[in-house]
Amino acid sequence: MSLVKRDVQSEVDRITKIINDMSASITSATQEMVEKVKALEVTNTAQTYMEDSKTQFQPLVERVQAEAAKLQEQIKPFVTDIEDQFKPLSDMMEQFFQQVVDQTKALLPSQ
C-alpha cells in the first residue's frame, strides 16, 4: 500500500511540475507577445506620425519651392544685367594683366 501511495505522489509531483512548466511557458509566451504588440504599436504610431507630418509639411515645402522659383525668375534679369556690366571690365582687366606680363617678360634679361 505504501509503495502505491509513493508512486501516486511521485506521479502527482511529476504532473504538477509539467503543469507549472506549461504555465511558465504560457506566461513567458504571453509576455513576449505583449512586448511584440507594444513594439508594433510604437512602430505604427511613429509611422503614422511621420506620414501625418509629411502631409502637414508637404504644402509648406511646395510653397517655399514655388516662391524660390519665382524669386529666381525675378532676380535673373538683374544677374544678367550685372554680368553684362562687368564683362567689359573683366575683359579690360584681363588685357591689363596680359600687358603687365608682357612688359615684365620684356624687362627680364634674355637667357
Rank of each mutant, 00 (worst) to 15 (best):
Q85W: 05
A29S: 04
A69Y: 07
T48E: 14
S53C: 09
I75H: 02
Q111C: 00
S90A: 13
V64G: 02
A29Y: 00
V37Q: 08
M1Q: 04
S110E: 10
V4Q: 14
S23D: 11
P109C: 01
K36Y: 03
V100M: 06
T104W: 06
S25Y: 01
V4D: 14
T27H: 01
K54Y: 07
A39T: 10
F86K: 07
P77D: 00
S53F: 06
R63A: 15
I82L: 07
I19G: 00
L108Q: 07
I15K: 05
K54N: 08
T104A: 13
K38S: 11
P77S: 00
S28F: 09
A46W: 04
D52P: 00
D81S: 10
E32P: 01
A46N: 15
Q98H: 05
R6V: 10
L108H: 05
V64R: 04
T16C: 08
A68W: 00
T43F: 14
Q111V: 08
Q58S: 14
I26T: 04
P59K: 03
A39C: 03
V64M: 11
A24L: 09
Q65L: 13
D84W: 02
E11Q: 12
F96G: 08
M33H: 12
V79I: 12
S28T: 08
V8E: 00
A106G: 03
S53R: 15
S25N: 05
N44S: 01
N44G: 05
D7W: 12
Q98I: 04
V79A: 07
T48H: 13
A24V: 03
I15A: 04
N20W: 13
S25I: 01
K54L: 09
I26Q: 01
M22I: 00
E32A: 04
V100T: 02
S28Q: 08
Q103R: 11
A69T: 15
T104N: 12
R6M: 06
L71S: 11
T30K: 12
K5P: 01
V79M: 07
N44Q: 06
Q47N: 11
D81Y: 06
A68L: 08
K76W: 01
T80C: 02
V61H: 09
A68N: 07
D52C: 04
L3I: 15
Q111N: 05
Q47C: 02
E83D: 15
V101H: 02
V61F: 04
T55D: 05
K76P: 03
I26K: 01
M50Q: 14
A29N: 04
E94V: 07
I19S: 06
A66I: 06
T27D: 03
E67H: 05
T43V: 09
T104S: 12
I15P: 00
N20R: 11
A46Y: 07
V101T: 14
E62H: 02
L3Y: 14
K38Y: 06
I75T: 06
K5L: 12
Q85H: 11
F78H: 14
E94Y: 09
T16D: 14
Q9V: 15
Q111A: 08
V12E: 03
P59G: 02
P77M: 00
T45H: 15
Q111H: 04
